[in-house]
Design a protein around this nucleic acid. Structure first.
Lengths: 220, 220
DNA sequence: GTCTATACATGGATAGAC
DNA sequence: GTCTATCCATGTATAGAC
């Protein structure tokens, strides 16, 4: 039932002079996607097309002139949303930092996504709809999770301060503990029922990793 | 894990001397909850009452003679399901093991829940419905997550092999990395797109924690 | 292309026979 | 208490006016 998520459509070259109608159509499409995004992120896939149309400020029929059906709209939307978060994480200039500062900054950037309502809602939606839309989960894993872990794995391998026997497993543990912190605290509301500062998590994670790396180096 | 819930019981033979009405009512209620459980875990809260009645093998009206409405049925069901998983984790005899064996066993027990379809589906459902049913998330956190972390925190505090500055943060990191592994590999299907053995995760997690504990002790 | 109005199916919940 | 049959609101999707 669930079709594959579509690849992002290639936008026309900005230098090409567009017709007015084309421009307006793109604006309308954008308007629809914005409204649909907010509605889906708030209410999940069970959000009604009526609610989406109202939120986007267009008639329901207009939705169907731009998208074949609800599922296509959802797929196009989530594709774009996930693409939006792809570049969060390790940036080239980060690599120049000393190891401890690097790890701290990377953890801070990762956890800063806790403050992004769209990111938190996206996490809930991807996980919650992973049975109905496995393609969505797959895009999330291959575009966001996998590259993040791969970059961290590569960093660990290249860094002589971090001489671990299984860099990928270590990267997964580090990454996973942070993502799960976001899920527990923000998605599930743990910040109210079992609060703890993100600094304590970051500090302990860095301590553990650096201490372990030192000991690991000594025991070789 | 011999903990899986029973299949729905067949309708009692009319020729057999029946239980008294209270007994039959309890059986029927149980039958409904079993069917509803499977349906909700498979399809999420969007599962229809028709589908639930069919799966339970009763008429839809019968559902409403035992539960006021869909939401009440769902709540009662999830309450019981969560209660069912409360005691997974640390058992008294585990504490007698040496530190390393203890940590390995605890991690193995935690990750063994990956093989339990009901647990994996429950995770997806709790997270996915955390916006619509925040009470459900809260029960999950206070009955499952919080006690698990508290027990691990207490163990770390009492164990002189594990002299960490912030035991609770360390417990959260350990627990979180394992739970997130379940979410990524089983809930999201990462076992297909980014596979890795659970032994590698367990081994690296133990290595990191024990190494870090040694180094932490030395630096005091 | 965009609106109002509507067709058609599904879902939650109830009525009434037994 | 349990069934069959049904009500009615909602949801997806479409038709037709402008």
């Amino acid at each position: 039932m669930a079709r594959s998520l579509r690849k992002p459509t290639a936008r026309p070259n900005a230098l090409v002079v567009a017709h007015d109608s084309t421009e307006r159509a793109r604006d309308k499409r954008e308007q629809i996607m914005q409204g649909a995004l907010r509605t889906f992120l708030s209410n999940g896939y069970s959000a009604s097309m009526d609610a989406i149309a109202a939120e986007a400020g267009v008639a329901k029929q207009t939705l169907y002139s731009y998208f074949n059906n609800k599922e296509d709209l959802f797929a196009a939307l989530m594709d774009r949303l996930l693409e939006h978060f792809v570049d969060a994480g390790m940036t080239p200039e980060l690599r120049t930092l000393p190891t401890q500062a690097f790890l701290r900054k990377l953890a801070q950037i990762t956890l800063s996504q806790m403050d992004d309502w769209e990111y938190v809602s996206m996490l809930r939606l991807v996980i919650g709809e992973s049975a109905r839309f496995p393609q969505l989960s797959e895009v999330y894993l291959t575009r966001l999770v996998s590259p993040g872990i791969a970059k961290l794995t590569h960093y660990i391998k290249m860094n002589e301060d971090l001489a671990f026997g299984d860099p990928e497993a270590v990267a997964r543990i580090m990454h996973g503990s942070l993502i799960n912190f976001i899920i527990a605290q923000e998605v599930l509301g743990g910040k109210h029922t079992m609060p703890i500062s993100r600094e304590r998590i970051i500090n302990s994670l860095i301590d553990i990793v650096l201490f372990a790396a030192q000991q690991s180096a000594q025991s070789r």
